[in-house]
Design a protein around this nucleic acid. Sequence first.
DNA 1: ATAATAGTGTCTTTTAGACACTATCGT
DNA 2: ACGATAGTGTCTAAAAGACACTATTAT
Lengths: 258, 258
Amino acid sequence: MTHQPQQYRSPDGLPVDIAIFTITSHAKLGNYRMLADRRLDVLLVRRSASSEAFPGCWALPGGFSKEGETLLEAAYRELKEETNVDRDVTIEQIKTVYYPGRDPRGWMPSVLYCTLVKEAYLLKLAADTDADEVRLFPLDEALKMKLAFDHNELLQDALNYVQTKMMTTTIAKQFLPEEFTIRELYQVIQTVVPSFEEDIANFKRNLMTTKARQGLIREAVTADGQPKTTDRNSNRPAQLYVYTDYEPRISIYNSGLF
Amino acid sequence: MTHQPQQYRSPDGLPVDIAIFTITSHAKLGNYRMLADRRLDVLLVRRSASSEAFPGCWALPGGFSKEGETLLEAAYRELKEETNVDRDVTIEQIKTVYYPGRDPRGWMPSVLYCTLVKEAYLLKLAADTDADEVRLFPLDEALKMKLAFDHNELLQDALNYVQTKMMTTTIAKQFLPEEFTIRELYQVIQTVVPSFEEDIANFKRNLMTTKARQGLIREAVTADGQPKTTDRNSNRPAQLYVYTDYEPRISIYNSGLF
DNA sequence: ATAATAGTGTCTTTTAGACACTATCGT
DNA sequence: ACGATAGTGTCTAAAAGACACTATTAT
C-alpha cells in the first residue's frame, strides 16, 4: 500500500471486525418428528501461530477497509472471505472502539459490525474450511474463552445489541426462512433471548389480534390463495407465516417486559 | 483474514463529532403562571472563513481525539470546549462513518457522538461566546440548513437515535431536573417525539399503576417524609417525582405504539 | 370570579394470562 | 393407540382509553 506524505500520515482504511451469528439446529432423536433444539453460535477465526499479537488465539474475523471502499463494504467483504456468504444478509454497525493500549502494536481502533446468517447459508463452511482455523462456537462457550484483543467485550456488546434488537425490531426474520411457523418464530426469539417465555397460545393470539401488532406477520398462501402449511416440525402440518414490511416501534412480541 | 501489522504510519487519533441537544424554554405571556413552550435545539459551530473545506459553513462541533485519550474522552473534551459544560452529562456513541470522498482533503472518518444537556447548563453559553460562531439552532431549522460535510445526515442520524431512545429508555431524565412533575416529563417526551400524544391523566395512571412500569419514577419527598411539590408551572402546586434506577426493557410510557 | 394547571373517578373496551381442551398426522 | 406438535375456547384479571369532574392557587 502506498500513501502520500501528509501533515499527518494516515491509513486509507480502518480496521473492521464482524460478529457473525447463526442459529444451528440439532435434531432430537425419537420415533416421531420433533422440533429441533436450536443454539446461538458465533463464528471465530484462529490467529496464525506466527502473529505478532495474540498468536494462536481465537478472534472475531476482521481486517482493514481498503481504499475506495466504505466500512460496510469492508464488512461484507470480510463476511464473504470467511464464510463465502454473498447473499441478502443485513450487516449492522454496532460501535467503534479506540483507546490507548488496545493493541500492543500501536494505533488500532476497530469498527464493530454484526450480522445474523441463516444456518443454510453456512452449510459449505464446514466442508470448505479447516475447522481448526475458522469455526462456529456456541455463544456461551465463546464468551468464556480468552479471545484476542478486547474481543470478549466486543462479542458481549454484539450480543447485547442483538438481544435488544430481537425484542424491539423484526430482525428475527434474518434467522428464519421466508415462510415460517409461529413456533419457529417463537423458538428463534427464545434462542437469542432465553428469558423470553410465554404461553405459546397466548403468544400467537397477542401477535395476531392486538391492534399494535396487527399486520406484523400474515399467513402464507399458495398461488391459488390456499393457506400454506409445512410438516417439517411435526406430523401435523402447521400454518406458515411471512413477515410484512411493518416495523413496529416497540417491543413487538408483547406489551410488557420480556 | 485478521488484522495485518500496519506497513504505514498512522495518526494516533480519530475525528470525533458531537451532536449536542438541549431543550430550551420559552415562557408564554399572560397574567397567570403558565407552562413554558419547549423546543429541541442543537448546537452548531461556524467553520472559519479561511477553512480549506466548507469555509463559513455551520457544522457539528468536532475534532481529533488525542494521543492517550479514548474516543469518549475526546467527546467530553469537545463538549467542554464548546459549551464549558463539565458535569454529569451522558455522552453516547451513535455511529462511525467513513467512505471515499467524504472529505475533499482525504482520509476523514468520523465517530459521531451525541449528548443531551439541560438548558440550565448552557446559560453561560450565550454570554461567553460569539453567537456568530457558536450557537443553538432549533432542530427543524438546523435540518434545513446546508451544513458542512455530511453533517446533515449525521444530525438526522443523531435525531433518530435520540427519538428511539426517548421512547425506549429513561434518557428523558437527562433533560429534566432531578425532581420534576409528570407534566414536565410528558412535555420533554413530546418535544423530542412530537407524535407522542396521550391523555395526560391516562399517561400518569399508566406510568404509575401498571406492573411493568411500577417503580420507574416515584414521588419526591422532603426530609421529613412529606410529599414535595412545586409551583413553577402553575399556581396550584404539583407533585414532584424522581426517576429510580429501574430501566425497563420496552417502551416505557405506554404499551402500544407511539 | 377567573384562568390556568393539577389531579380524581368512572365506565367501556381491549389485552394479557392461565389453562383445559380438541385436532392432525405418521408410525 | 400413541407421541408429538398444532391449534381453539373460555374465563378472569389487568391495562388502556375516553372523558367528565373536582381541586388549588394568584391575581
